[in-house]
Each structure stands twice: as C-alpha cells, then as structure tokens.
C-alpha cells in the first residue's frame, strides 16, 4: 500500500474548512495546518489546498517546495533534528550530524526505510546557549556530544524493537 493512500478525507475537509475559500494569501498558514494534521504534505492535500484557495497545482507546489518547513514525503515516527546554527557550529554541531548519519544510516533530510527515524538539520532554533543542540521528538537536548547522541538514538530505536 502506498503512503499516499492513508490520509483521512474527513480530516482533510476539517482542516480546509478552517480556512476561508478563495483566499490565496492564506496558503502558507494552510500548509502548516495540513502538515500538523498529516505530519507531512501528501499530494492529495496539496491538490485540495490549491482547489480550495483558487490556485493552480503548480503555484501550490512551488510554494510548498520553497519553504524548508514543509515536507512532501512521509516522515519518521521519531524526528531527530540537529541544530546547525552558528553557535552550535562553532561548538561542533557537524560532528553530531555525522554521528546521527552513521547511526541511522541516512543523510540529513532523509527518513529511514522503515519510517522509524527522520534526520533533519535546522539553521538555529534560538537556543544558542545550549549548543550544540539536538532536538529529539520536540525535546531539546543541550551540550550534546556524539556518544551521548548515539545512546539517545539507540534508546529510541530499542524502545519498540525494530520490526
């Protein structure tokens, strides 16, 4: 079964209903709400968003791919975000990213084939005093070191055991 097929049409309708029809200015906010509902932006949701706001598919796709905050592919159950802001960079963030890439066997921006983990990088979340910083499923982990990150990722992947 393809990942595209699993979105709930009622939920899609519900999100769209919160946004006024025919107002293209609301596109970025609508995309945020769609992503909050589905964890990524499924093709079907983008098509419906276009219809709802009176835009073309091309316009919506152009916008969705322009902004780094939008994801057009399904994301993993766990999201590991390595902050690559300047403060984190000078405190060794690149090594954290490399460690996570080795541990998860994906590159930044990719999701593991079993959809357990997505590895992302972000250009500063404004928590520079904590640098280098890794955000695991929304929780901030400051003063991170490669070996500690490995242990944290290991703990998460053991939790339910790999399928």
């Amino acid at each position: 079964m393809s990942a595209q097929a699993v979105i709930d049409p009622a939920e899609l309708d519900e999100v769209l209903a919160r946004h006024p029809q025919g107002q293209p200015a609301g596109l970025v906010n609508l995309l945020h709400d769609l992503q909050a509902a589905f964890r990524y932006l499924p093709e079907q949701a983008l098509e419906r968003a276009a219809e709802h706001l009176g835009l073309s598919s091309a316009e919506v796709y152009g916008v969705a791919t322009f902004y780094e905050g939008f994801h057009l592919k399904p994301r993993g159950e766990h999201i590991c975000t390595v902050c690559m802001g300047t403060a984190c960079h000078v405190r060794g963030a690149a090594r954290l990213l490399e460690q996570a890439e080795r541990d998860l066997a994906v590159r930044a921006g990719q999701t593991t084939p079993d959809l357990r983990f997505t590895l992302e990088q972000v250009n500063c979340v404004g928590a520079c005093a904590l640098g280098p910083l890794v955000i695991l499923d929304g929780k901030y982990h400051g003063s991170m070191a490669p070996d500690r990150l490995s242990r944290l990722l290991g703990k998460l992947s053991d939790k339910k055991g790999s399928k």
């Binding site: 945020h32 916008v63 902004y67």
Partner: peptide, 21 residues
C-alpha cells in the same frame, strides 16, 4: 507563521510570503 526561509526576513519577500507566494 513563516514557512522556514531566511530570505523572508527581507521586506518584499516577507510580503510575498504573507500573500501566499
């Protein structure tokens, strides 16, 4: 909410983003 684009700190880009572009 911004979409995650540094360039939108520039005034005319921010306006484009607020207009859904």
């Amino acid at each position: 909410r911004g979409g995650g684009a540094f360039v939108c700190g520039e005034e005319s880009a921010m306006i484009a983003s607020l207009e859904g572009r």
